[in-house]
């Protein structure tokens, strides 16, 4: 499986958008498993960081022999982007699967799962807001992508983007406030 994923990801990285379509179902299962495992919870260990799961996934899927990495930062940058693409794509497909059309649904009111009403619980809206942020300030959007989707530490982000750690912290703080406000405003309407 690894070989196939790797080839497709490489093709995608080289600019073939169709390759991505084909890789998603392969990665889908893996992500489901990871999500299940993440929710079940792993026994604690001194060296396990929750955000390391993302990198573990990418390392496992991509390996170090497949795609051309220019640097550690490059790898992390691409893996964060990939993670974002895949998660958002899956979320979008799920939503699209919902058949349209009216039909009577006898759903007892007390059993409906209350949809998330606070910002931050819906990946698609976070992604949209992030795209808006990228229009205003690309670097801040990159910081969010690397941190939120890629799980990198502040130091690793600084290294990837070539800025100081202080800058990363400031970018993150501002971006977070901006995104929250944008989403909260959207919810209010």
């Amino acid at each position: 499986m690894n070989g196939e994923v790797t080839t497709l990801l490489r093709a995608w990285n080289d600019g073939d958008p169709d390759a991505f379509e084909r890789v998603v179902p392969l990665v889908y299962e893996e992500l489901h498993r990871m999500a299940a495992r993440y929710l079940i919870g792993e026994p604690s260990s001194i060296s396990l960081q929750p955000t390391a799961l993302v990198n573990e996934l990418c390392l496992r899927l991509l390996g170090w022999d497949g795609v051309r990495w220019q640097s550690r930062g490059h790898f992390f940058g691409v893996s964060a982007g990939m993670m974002r693409h895949v998660l958002v794509d899956i979320a979008r497909r799920r939503r699209a699967e919902r058949r349209g059309g009216p039909h009577v649904v006898r759903v007892p009111l007390d059993t409906i799962d209350v949809p998330a009403s606070e910002p931050g619980a819906d990946l698609l809206e976070i992604d949209s807001a992030l795209q808006l942020l990228a229009l205003e300030d690309p670097r801040k959007a990159q910081v969010v992508e690397l941190r939120f989707f890629g799980g990198l530490s502040m130091e690793e982000i600084a290294e990837t983007l070539g800025v100081s750690v202080r800058t990363v912290h400031a970018d993150w703080a501002f971006a977070r406030a901006w995104l929250y406000r944008t989403l909260a405003d959207a919810h209010a309407h």
Binding site: A35, P50, L87, R94, L123, F149, R176, L179
Partner: peptide, 15 residues
């Protein structure tokens, strides 16, 4: 907000 990684949000959302 955003302190948990995207995977967490993803997992909870589909859950």
């Amino acid at each position: 907000f955003l302190t948990a990684p995207a995977l967490d949000v993803f997992a909870r959302q589909i859950s």
